[in-house]
C-alpha cells in the first residue's frame, strides 16, 4: 500500500503534454462552474466533456472506475436519504415511504456533478506529477507557504507511512491482534502518538538540514514551463467548453 499513487501522471497523450498551468486553471474554472450549475443540460454537457477529457488523456478506464468507486458510497447514501426526506411533489410511493421529485432531481444533480468533477480532475490535474502540480501552483502565484506545505507533505507522507508500517509490524510480531477492547484502543493511540512525536522530530531535523544548506526562508524554484502551440489550442478549446456550458446554464437569463 502506498498513500501516494501517481498512476495517471505518466503518459504521452495530448493532455499529458499540455502546460500544467493551463491544466490547473482549466480544472479550477471548469469544476467551479459545474459545482454551481443547476440546469440538467449543463450538467449532462459537463459530464460529456469530462468523459471526453478522460478519453483524450488516454486514461485506463478500469483505473478511472476504481477511483469513481470512492464516491459511489456517498452517492448511494444520498440516493437513499434525500428523495425520501425532501418536501414537494410526490413521484411515487414505496410502502410507507414517499419518493419526492425535488429530492430525486437533487440526487441526480449531485451524482452528475461529483462524477464529472472527479473525471475532469483525473484528466487534468492527475496527468502530471504531484511535484509538477506544486510548481504549477507556485507559478500561478498561489501562496508560497501553501505550495511548500503541499510539496513537503507529498515528500514526507511516504516516510511517515513507512514509520507507521514498521510500528504495525513491530506490534504484530509480538502477537498483537486488534479487537474491540481497551488494549487495542490504547495501542493504536500510542502508535498515533508516537507517529506525531516522530514527525515532529523529523521536522526539526529537516529544518536543521535545510539551515545547513543556507536556507533563509525563501524558496527558489528552478522550474520553467515550455511554451508550445498545442497549449494555445488547448486553452482555446477549454475556453469554448467553459463558455458553452455557461451559456447552457445562464443563457436564459440574457435577453436579446
Amino acid at each position: 500500500m502506498t498513500l501516494i499513487n501517481e498512476h495517471f501522471a505518466s503518459g504521452s497523450s495530448v493532455i499529458h503534454r499540455i502546460d500544467p498551468r493551463i491544466k490547473v486553471i482549466s480544472a479550477a474554472v471548469f469544476t467551479i462552474i459545474l459545482a454551481i450549475s443547476q440546469q440538467f443540460e449543463t450538467l449532462i454537457a459537463g459530464f460529456f466533456f469530462s468523459f471526453s477529457l478522460v478519453l483524450l488523456a488516454g486514461l485506463n478506464v478500469k483505473e478511472v472506475l476504481k477511483r469513481l468507486f470512492v464516491i459511489i458510497g456517498f452517492l448511494i447514501l444520498i440516493w437513499v436519504i434525500v428523495p425520501l426526506t425532501f418536501e414537494g411533489e410526490q413521484l411515487f410511493k414505496i410502502g410507507p415511504f414517499s419518493v419526492m421529485k425535488p429530492g430525486v432531481f437533487l440526487s441526480a444533480r449531485i451524482t452528475l456533478k461529483s462524477v464529472s468533477i472527479l473525471m475532469a480532475l483525473m484528466a487534468l490535474t492527475a496527468t502530471m506529477a504531484l511535484s509538477t502540480l506544486g510548481h504549477a501552483m507556485s507559478r500561478l502565484k498561489i501562496s508560497g507557504k501553501l505550495v511548500h506545505l503541499f510539496m513537503i507533505t507529498i515528500r514526507y507522507i511516504a516516510v511517515i507511512e513507512q514509520e507507521y508500517g514498521r510500528l504495525l509490524r513491530a506490534i504484530k510480531i509480538r502477537g498483537f491482534k486488534p479487537g474491540t477492547n481497551m488494549h487495542t484502543y490504547r495501542t493504536f493511540a500510542y502508535i498515533i502518538g508516537i507517529l506525531f512525536v516522530r514527525a515532529s522530530s523529523r521536522a526539526d531535523r529537516v529544518y536543521q538540514a535545510m539551515r545547513c544548506r543556507g536556507f533563509d526562508g525563501r524558496f527558489i524554484s528552478i522550474h520553467e514551463f515550455q511554451t508550445h502551440k498545442r497549449n494555445g489550442v488547448f486553452s482555446a478549446l477549454m475556453i469554448l467548453i467553459i463558455i458553452f456550458i455557461s451559456i447552457l446554464e445562464w443563457g436564459h437569463l440574457i435577453e436579446f
Partner: peptide, 19 residues
C-alpha cells in the same frame, strides 16, 4: 530522509547553490 526534502533529485541538489 532528513536531508532530501525536495520532490526531485535535481531540485534537491540545486537547493543549496540557489541559497
Amino acid at each position: 530522509d532528513d536531508q532530501l526534502f525536495n520532490p526531485t533529485v535535481l531540485e534537491d541538489i540545486a537547493f543549496g547553490p540557489l541559497n
